[in-house]
Structure formats: structure tokens, C-alpha cells
Amino acid sequence: MTAIIAAIANLKGGVGKSTTTVMLADGLSYFYGLNVCVVDLDAQANSSQMLLTERGVQMAYEQGKGATHLLSSFIKGEPANVADFIMPNAVSLEELRIAEENDDRLGWISSLPSHPHLRLQEMGLEETWYSQAGTPTSLANKLAEHFKTGFDVLREYYDIILFDCPPHLSPLARAGLSLSDVFVMPTIADAVSTWGTKQFSDWVGANVAPDLPSRNFVLITRFRNTGYSKQIANELQEVYLKDRWFGPKIPESVHVLNAMERAAPDSYDTFRGKYGGVKGDVKRLSERFTDFLSQQRAGRKWQKMRD
């Protein structure tokens, strides 16, 4: 395996980055049997919470797992053995659990969770860095350099690594973006978010890699079927972000909210039970995303394992 790294990112908050991250993790592991690692770079720790529950996030932190401890390795100048900070089981789908129990693992999710403490830790690091004449860019570069070896090792164990990024350009988010092969930009079909997509992808092109915007997968989330939203979605696709890959529009739905609240750290559900009325949307999202990946990485096959 040589994992593809995908950052799920947008400067705009609340557009569905974390929800998209979890839907992709579930969809790719379930339908394509992929081994997925979700890396949460956001101190809000929302995708970690969705995967592991609040208690799970806290337990991981106390067990020395997650992004905070990975960042500590950088601060202490220790090598970034990323695998040491991973929670091996972040699966909530019953079908995956049963297959694993029968020694027939077919699709799996692991997590490198975040924790609210991450923000304080990053701020401490920034304070020290800037007091020694460092800049935000040099910090992001140094972090990327430090984590690159660790993630290169990790690539051998997974098919896909998803970075859930915060809604601001934190040092870790910048490092994450520069380690990414592709980036997914969730957005909402409204005026403020639309302008934000231009701002963010221009910034990515200018500061991370000039060709990264061409490796972009756009997803319109929380879509309401109104004339206004349809018009904005159409403009995004036909004008503003023309020639990019678009996923299926994900409807605004209470099924999504339900799916994102795991009942307990040891709670499991079938794919059908978890996603209810939006299961078709998650399926189309994974299909479209693997099409996008095939184009990005020629020769790589993505085969459906479940339907």
C-alpha cells in the first residue's frame, strides 16, 4: 500500500469539513474495503469526537495518543513516529467489526485524534518560535519536514490518510496541506462561502503548491434544495471553480446529524442504520471520490467490495 494523503480543508468554518472527513472514512472503508487513517489537525477535535465519542477522545489523550503528543515530539526534537500516536480502532460500522472478528478484515478506520489542548500547545510553540525570529511560514515548513518521514512510513500501512483541518491556517494545518497529495474543499452554496472558496484555493496555490488547486475535489455540503442554492451551486460548478472535480451535493439533513453522534465508545451500527436517509449520498460521495483518485493516480484500482 502507498496511501494517498487528502487534506479536507477550507478557511471557512462550519462548512462540513469534519462531517465530510467521517463520511469519506466510512464510505471508503465500507464500499471499497480501504484501510483509512483519519488524522485530526483541529483542536476542536470534532471528527475525533464523531469517530471515538467525547470519552474516547479524552481516553486517547490520557493514553498518550493523538495530535497533541505528536506535536510534543516536534517540540522535544524527537523523531515523529506517527504510528505510536494512532488509535488503531475508530470503526463504528458493524459490518467492518464483524469481518474483523472473523479474521477477514475488509475495510478499517484508525484515528490520530485531536484534543482541545492542541490549540494551547500550538500557541505555546508559536510564541517560542516567533520570539526566536521564526515566521509562520518557517514554522509550517519545519513542521512539514519533521512529519514527512513519519507520514511516509505511515503511507505503507494505509490506503488513504485523511487530514481534517481547522477553519484557520494553524501551523499544523499548513504543514498538513503541504504533505497532501490532494485536497478536498467542502463548501456551502451561499455567497460568503463561495467567495471563501476562491480565497482559500488561491492561498493554497500561492503558499502551499501552485498545482494543488488542480488536485482539488469540491463538495457542496448542507445543501438545501432552494432556487437560491441551486443557482449558487451552478455558478460554482460552471464558473468560479470550473474544471475542478465536484462530489455529489450532500443535503442538509437530520440523518447526517444523527450519523455523526456515536452513542458510546463501544457502540456499533450497520451502514444502513448509521446513515439512514443519506446512505445513497455517502455511497455516491465515495464513488465520485475514488473516480477522482483514479485520475490523480493512474494505475491505481479502486474496487467495490460491498454495495
Partner: peptide
């Protein structure tokens, strides 16, 4: 109350 799934 989102405290359990049918599987649980």
C-alpha cells in the same frame, strides 16, 4: 436519545 443503535 441517541444512546444506542439497533445493533447495540
Amino acid at each position: 436519545n441517541n444512546l444506542a443503535t439497533s445493533v447495540d
